[in-house]
Design a protein around this nucleic acid. Sequence first.
DNA 1: CTGAAAGCGCTAACAC
DNA 2: GTGTTAGCGCTTTCAG
Lengths: 351, 351
Amino acid sequence: MIKRRSVPALLDVARHAGVGAATVSRVINGGQNVSRKMLDRVQKSIDELGYHPSEAARSLKGARTKTIGLIVPSVADPFFAVTAAAVQEVARAHGTLVLLASSDNLPERESEHMVTLIQRRVDGLLLAPSDAADADLLKHAGFPVVCFDRPFPGNAASTVLIDNHGGAKMATEHLLHSGCRRILCLAGDSKLFTSQRRVRGYRDVMKAAGLPYIAELEVNDLEGVRNVLRRHLSGRENVDGIFCIKNALTIHAYKVLREMGVSIPEKVSLLGFDDFDLADTLEPPITVVRQPVVGIATKAAEMLFEAMATYREKRRTVTMNVELVVRGSCREPFLQSRKSSGKKVEPLRKR
Amino acid sequence: MIKRRSVPALLDVARHAGVGAATVSRVINGGQNVSRKMLDRVQKSIDELGYHPSEAARSLKGARTKTIGLIVPSVADPFFAVTAAAVQEVARAHGTLVLLASSDNLPERESEHMVTLIQRRVDGLLLAPSDAADADLLKHAGFPVVCFDRPFPGNAASTVLIDNHGGAKMATEHLLHSGCRRILCLAGDSKLFTSQRRVRGYRDVMKAAGLPYIAELEVNDLEGVRNVLRRHLSGRENVDGIFCIKNALTIHAYKVLREMGVSIPEKVSLLGFDDFDLADTLEPPITVVRQPVVGIATKAAEMLFEAMATYREKRRTVTMNVELVVRGSCREPFLQSRKSSGKKVEPLRKR
DNA sequence: CTGAAAGCGCTAACAC
DNA sequence: GTGTTAGCGCTTTCAG
């Protein structure tokens, strides 16, 4: 027996209270220009019937849907989880709900979700786009779009990024100052924007220093890291520093080094891009480049709401700074005779 | 200059293609009973205008909104992030979108979100309710609700739980078998359902064993854990085992023990409820009770979709099992002479 | 196979 | 102050 309990409509309330539709409408919209008496009567009917106005009908009248879309590769990923929470928070402050969708970095799935959100007539969209996001969809979207973490291909939308290149340079230089000369760069998924930028930062520093470029661009799981490290730590490579492009790799590298009995930082210095929860608790605590995760998302969300309010898209890209958090996984810097070179790393002792 | 670009409507397409509205409707709904010619013509107009049907108008006709709500205390919390991802996945398989909201464990905010979701006419709601969730709202919700992690007060909805009590007993017994006799139980936020159940499991075992009940029920931050441990490790308490009710506490306890120079497990055994990413990487790796996070969410979501499909609410509570993951933070069990007692812990070597 | 028209639940003009 | 009514964009009879 499938009996769909139909929820009461405005007209039901009106009839129940013996008033016109408009009066009910006024009541549920703040009760301006309604006599005390009517207001009470209507309110009573509303409560008795358990009435709640249909948002669908409201938005049909052309009003906003008070909903924004958020498409991320994966909600389970701590970075995007924190990001989602921050977006949430901004949205809530604007009386707006968030429609969450995950793309798994699959362009097709991403497009699929975008279409769905267009059909939902969301007021705006926040997006960490895949490398092959569909620019055509943006044209007919009918609402502003702001990207974060990665740009939209062809720079078709406003974007909030971090200084991946600068952060990677900072990291590599820190390793250099720690006395490392044969630095391995560990990266996964070389098609990812962030990955490319960070590798480039590493490369530029190494090249400028006349040191060898040793990079592994497609390692992702623990097994992969194990193979790679086994190879590079013995033999002629004889790596003395490791720069990991992302969290998972940093953690894998840490594990492998431990299981291989390689001491950090005495034998090998380890530095990761992106901070993580227990980075300061490991033995030794891991030195990382920290990105302002909440800041990125908040900024992106604010830009979106601004665009939604003004309804004029002045496309722009905001780049946020990262900071080096020095802990204990890199050797202490050698005496720096080159004090004058100015832009030396300012070690922070955080956490 | 605020010019809101209005998106094309079905009628625009109809006019553009020189056909009736119904024909366009048929085309966008699978194109049954439409001549090849018409179909092509309409499709062309659709593409040219970049038309996407309005979901709001569709659901106004009484159809489903193909949206479910998900209310969690915090998306940033890894547990709920993973949960959200799993829900996502099930929803996607059902062609449904997820409206995500976070309550911060605040009953008022929770109710607020519930009202909003009711107004959105979501097809169903997944909820990790606060301890003071509003049962009245459920009455007029008009859609099925399934809770997870915690029950709805008064058991007003179907629920997916884990065996908190059993898990805590398992944990405490394991500590006992490890030779601990003075076991401290660390809990935060004593009003939380999960916390209460777990503390109770600990208590029951201790009581049955005739051992002292030593619990701290309102520690939450690192500072709090530090104070508590300092107190209990010295002096007459002289704790030799610690059972942490949740992740954050386990990690804090680990940190404090390290900074105090207390060796784990030689001096103190440590056991946490709920597994976490680096539990196997710390020194020593932490023994934990693991709950099937994805399983919980998936089960809850499936129950919800089932209820949505059948539209009959047969309220039920599902309890999922937890498992003990033995790593290295508890002393090796003493020789167990009581082999016959059967229900002894079956140590798993996972990860 | 195709089109005209009613109506979903609400808001906003407009009358009273 | 309050009620009537015309749509918003779509689906769905019901005629042609």
